[in-house]
Simulated scan of single mutants.
Amino acid sequence: MRIAGDQAGGVTVYWRMEGERVVWVTAEAPLASYSHTLPDLAVLLAGFSVREVEVLAGQSHFEGVRWVPPG
């Protein structure tokens, strides 16, 4: 399997496992709504309290939703 992200970082690609398949989107909120997932409070709090440091580490603001880093 080959996964390609946007090298310039202009379009973030989000994904989530749904059973045995992967759902890909370019916006995390619709995917979270589709999957009925809740916000990830730890990631949200880290984003509000830490500046200029990458806190997501492949996660998004919703539980179970991941993103492909650029490059």
Rank of each mutant, 00 (worst) to 15 (best):
R2T: 07
R2I: 10
I3K: 13
A4C: 06
A4K: 12
G5R: 08
G5V: 03
Q7W: 09
Q7F: 14
Q7C: 08
Q7I: 10
A8I: 02
A8C: 06
A8Q: 06
G9T: 07
G10W: 10
G10N: 13
G10F: 14
G10Q: 10
G10H: 13
G10P: 03
V11P: 00
T12A: 11
T12V: 09
V13E: 11
Y14G: 02
Y14E: 06
Y14P: 02
Y14W: 09
W15K: 00
R16V: 15
R16W: 10
R16L: 14
M17C: 08
G19P: 00
E20P: 00
R21D: 03
R21C: 01
R21I: 02
V22S: 02
V23S: 04
V23T: 10
V23Q: 02
V23W: 03
W24R: 06
W24P: 01
W24T: 10
W24C: 05
V25Y: 10
V25G: 12
T26G: 04
T26D: 07
E28T: 05
A29M: 12
A29T: 10
P30V: 15
L31N: 00
L31Y: 00
A32R: 06
A32N: 06
S33G: 14
S33K: 15
S33C: 11
Y34T: 01
Y34V: 04
S35T: 07
S35W: 06
T37D: 04
L38V: 11
L38C: 11
P39N: 13
P39W: 08
D40K: 10
D40E: 14
L41P: 03
L41F: 06
A42S: 11
V43S: 12
V43M: 13
L44K: 09
L44M: 13
L45V: 09
L45H: 11
A46D: 12
G47L: 05
G47R: 12
F48A: 01
F48D: 04
F48Y: 07
V50P: 02
V50T: 14
R51C: 05
R51E: 03
R51M: 08
V53G: 02
V53Y: 15
E54Q: 14
V55W: 14
V55F: 11
L56R: 15
L56T: 15
A57I: 03
G58W: 03
G58A: 03
G58H: 03
G58V: 02
Q59C: 05
S60W: 07
S60C: 09
H61N: 02
H61Y: 12
F62A: 00
F62T: 01
E63V: 14
E63T: 09
G64Y: 09
G64D: 14
V65N: 07
R66C: 09
R66G: 04
W67D: 01
W67I: 05
V68E: 09
V68I: 12
V68S: 03
P69D: 05
P69Q: 11
P70R: 05
G71Y: 05
G71L: 15
